[in-house]
């Protein structure tokens, strides 16, 4: 009986401590105005992504030649495009597409980057091989490399994700490797070795968690860059194939009628700018929050 009470007490204590920590994190986030702004923009973008069918009244692919190039109105908030499609719906679904591609790229690069980064930091020979490949990939301008990969794979959403992941994995691998190199020399790693920990245990349980905060920050930036590059690829016709709405596609369609229909370029353009700005602000803020050394506000 007593033991049971003690157990619940212990569990409660633990829960409370975790709660406190989370509270502290949130407090720091709220205090940093930049991170907060970025965070709000991201939340809005996420809501748009998930609620796309609910907030749009028109099918983004529905052509309506009679009502083409109409200025923004109560029926078409962002007007219509050169074949009469509702720009608002297209932008909303474009944001959905961008967020999906960006998140997928950030996720894939984070996983690949942490694997390559950790192992190259830990094993010397592997380091030379992985890092030389990395250097090779980084030597190409990222957009050119992405276009080349897209040309080889063909325009498809999955291929955009693959191409951008190849382009950005080296970036993450570098960041993870550099912080893992520092962590690797810490006494607690040697201590773990002296306690009988195997290499894999040390790499994944003891080095990896310590590289998470720079990884998280870098992944946010990759997220932002992936959105820009996806738009760029789609604009150039090497990204998401035409009728599908994507921010880059809408911009491309709007380019031809820019003097007559400013709304076709303004709104998708704003969407790209705001989302990347939000992500960058959030990433910068996260860096300040997660890195105690750059904690100026405290």
């Amino acid at each position: 009986m007593e033991a049971a009470i003690e157990k619940t007490n212990k569990a409660q204590l633990q829960k409370e401590m975790k709660k406190q920590q989370r509270k502290l994190m949130l407090k720091r986030l709220l205090r940093s105005r930049m991170a907060l702004t970025g965070f709000i923009i991201l939340i809005v973008a996420t809501i748009i992504t998930f609620a796309a069918p609910l907030i749009t009244s028109h099918d983004p692919l529905q052509v309506d030649p009679v009502n083409r190039l109409q200025a923004p109105s109560a029926d078409h908030y962002f007007g219509t495009d050169d074949v009469g499609r509702d720009v608002f719906s297209r932008v909303v679904y474009g944001i959905q597409e961008s967020m999906f591609v960006g998140l997928a790229v950030a996720f894939v690069t984070a996983i690949l980057g942490i694997i390559f980064g950790l192992y190259s930091a830990y094993y010397n020979t592997l380091d030379h091989i992985i890092m030389r490949i990395n250097d090779g990939l980084m030597a190409f301008p990222s957009i050119l490399l992405a276009i080349a990969i897209m040309a080889a794979l063909g325009p498809k959403t999955v291929n955009v994700i693959i191409a951008l992941s190849v382009v950005y994995t080296p970036l993450i691998a570098r960041v993870v490797r550099s912080s893992a190199l520092v962590i690797k020399e810490q006494t607690y790693i040697e201590a773990m070795k002296s306690m009988g920990g195997s290499s894999n245990r040390i790499i994944w349980r003891h080095i990896a968690p310590n590289t998470l905060s720079p990884l998280l920050v870098q992944a946010t930036f990759v997220f932002a860059m992936a959105i820009i590059n996806e738009a760029m690829l789609s604009f150039l016709g090497a990204g998401i194939p035409a009728p599908e709405p994507s921010l880059g596609n809408i911009l491309y369609d709007g380019k031809n009628v820019i003097t007559k229909a400013w709304w076709m370029t303004l709104f998708p353009g704003l969407a790209v700018i705001l989302i990347t700005l939000g992500l960058n602000m959030f990433g910068d803020g996260m860096r300040d929050i997660l890195d105690p050394h750059s904690n100026k506000s405290n």
Partner: peptide, 16 residues
Amino acid sequence: GNEISMIFQDAMSSLN
């Protein structure tokens, strides 16, 4: 760690 253990000089950084 099981039969032969070691403790280090720098206790400050010996814990993860």
